Amino acid sequence: MATQIPVAIGRSIGSAVAAGFGLLRESLTRGTRRRRQEEILLDLLRQLALMTEEVHRANLIQEHRITMEQMNRTIDDPSLADARSTLAGVSEAKRRQMIFANGQYASLLLAYRVGTFEWTELLGHLRILCRNDIFAEYWDRTAEHRRSLPGDSLERRLGKVIDGMLEELADDPDRWWVVGSVDAAPE
């Protein structure tokens, strides 16, 4: 005699299997949906980080623009130069030259900070700038200003590199293109 499953029980088992498959499909769909939501969230966080960096660069550029406008005004008006500069015992013409040298250095530093060029390119520009006697004098006269910078700041580390460049140039000015340590690159 063949075993027969009553029709009602067969339907119940079939319904249970169908319901089980439905729950499995739903949980898989939820898992897939959750993973997709996590992927979207991570992508949004990456975009937010990029946007934050871009806003930071824009702020650096804006601050630099304001500073350069002030420097240009102090170069044009000697009475403002006296208010801005802390260098004592320099002529009006020399003060203007020093302010301009500071502007050149600040522009190179900004260009590096916003990613216009890499560390080795920055060093190349600084090697050329360090060959200028006005810049070398400016750098020497402002050594005290750099001592107050935090030791781990980019400007403090770069200052040490420039100090080394100027020392090396004093020893052998004919090899200006190789002065400065490339290994001193900041993180």
Score class of each variant (00 low, 15 high):
141 R>Q: 12
123 L>V: 07
142 T>R: 14
148 S>I: 05
141 R>G: 06
146 R>I: 01
151 G>A: 08
132 N>F: 01
126 L>E: 02
121 E>A: 15
149 L>Q: 07
132 N>R: 04
107 S>M: 11
89 G>S: 08
127 R>F: 10
104 Q>H: 07
98 M>F: 15
143 A>G: 05
158 L>Q: 04
101 A>I: 08
141 R>I: 05
105 Y>L: 15
139 W>D: 01
131 R>Y: 00
150 P>V: 00
141 R>H: 05
91 S>R: 14
117 F>Y: 15
133 D>E: 12
126 L>R: 02
128 I>Q: 11
150 P>F: 01
117 F>Q: 09
100 F>R: 09
108 L>M: 10
130 C>K: 01
132 N>Y: 02
103 G>H: 06
120 T>F: 06
99 I>D: 07
137 E>Q: 13
121 E>Y: 11
151 G>C: 00
92 E>P: 06
98 M>I: 14
116 T>A: 12
107 S>N: 05
88 A>D: 12
157 R>N: 05
127 R>V: 06
88 A>R: 12
121 E>N: 13
88 A>M: 08
91 S>L: 12
120 T>R: 14
99 I>N: 09
153 S>L: 00
110 L>K: 10
153 S>R: 00
113 R>I: 01
153 S>I: 00
148 S>L: 03
128 I>T: 13
105 Y>W: 11
144 E>R: 09
107 S>A: 11
118 E>N: 13
120 T>E: 13
90 V>K: 11
98 M>K: 05
141 R>M: 11
123 L>T: 03
98 M>L: 15
111 A>R: 15
96 R>H: 14
103 G>P: 04
114 V>N: 07
120 T>Q: 13
96 R>L: 06
117 F>M: 11
146 R>Q: 03
154 L>I: 12
117 F>T: 06
139 W>C: 00
117 F>W: 15
122 L>Q: 08
93 A>Y: 13
152 D>K: 01
100 F>K: 13
155 E>I: 05
111 A>K: 11
134 I>T: 13
155 E>K: 08
122 L>G: 08
137 E>C: 08
123 L>A: 03
125 H>Q: 12
92 E>C: 13
119 W>M: 12
124 G>P: 03
145 H>F: 06
142 T>N: 10
142 T>S: 14
108 L>C: 04
146 R>A: 02
126 L>A: 03
99 I>K: 04
126 L>Y: 00
154 L>Q: 02
143 A>N: 03
98 M>E: 14
96 R>C: 15
150 P>I: 01
102 N>H: 14
